[in-house]
Design a protein around this nucleic acid. Structure first.
Lengths: 121, 121
DNA sequence: CTCCTGGATAGATGGGTGTCAATATAGATG
DNA sequence: CATCTATATTGACACCCATCTATCCAGGAG
């Protein structure tokens, strides 16, 4: 059992939102991802992890950037984890998180407007 | 004053999430957009509008696709409107909604992973 | 084994949110 | 004006969620 990719993004795969109407199932799956990102703290956590050197970040690095208690940070990381956006791995004393770039890519692809529909202004 | 583009997406503009950590302000602005999309009904509404012929859709077209009351659909459209994702225009008896493709494009750009970080598998 | 530290879990609480029924508004039509 | 239809607004209710404090678990160091 190698990696267990996030199931959540499978159905909501490839077709851009602006190309054809989402099915109810696709919408439900996608909404879980967006819900996970619908919080400033989680967005910053995601961004800090994704942009960190080595593509991974220790919780100790992350927590210092916020005026929040440890449990709250843990909670947000759990939400991101359960949405399939990140994974955490314990190495010795610390826990390191990394993102699933495929999920971000898939989301990005869903949002891209139909070609040449972008306002030229 | 031509169109009044959604202010909400201005600060959260261009730099991909995985390139450098989001500022708190950027995260707050972005989270408003994601929160607006963090609902299956709103995602389907957005997709139905974006993919509709002529790039606009009448509320009467939209409402029939759901098992929800009119007020609930109105509420969701309002959330999308206030997030700057869509605009509504009344023409005669009906109200037509259309998306702001630039906002979708901006969101898509923010989510795109750092180049060649995408898993090749 | 004992203690300390990094991180997660559990439970509580205040505020937010999706839904509905009832009501209001805007245009069209008679 | 009176009336009908298409949306929007209001108010209520049940449920969800971000945060905290208190507690627990896992590893490393004496």
């Amino acid at each position: 059992m190698p990696k267990q990719l996030p199931i959540v993004a499978m159905d909501a795969c490839c077709s851009p939102l602006a190309r054809e109407p989402l099915s109810e199932g696709q919408a439900v799956e996608l909404s879980k991802l967006f819900k996970a990102m619908a919080d400033p703290v989680r967005l910053r956590l995601l961004s800090m992890i994704a942009s960190h050197a080595g593509s991974e970040a220790c919780v100790c690095d992350l927590a210092d950037a916020f005026d929040l208690t440890g449990p709250t940070i843990s909670h947000h990381l759990k939400v991101l984890r359960e949405a399939g956006l990140i994974t955490g791995e314990r190495r010795g004393t610390w826990v390191y998180y990394r993102v699933h770039p495929e999920v971000l890519a898939r989301l990005s692809a869903v949002l891209v407007p139909s070609e040449s529909d972008a306002v030229s202004a």
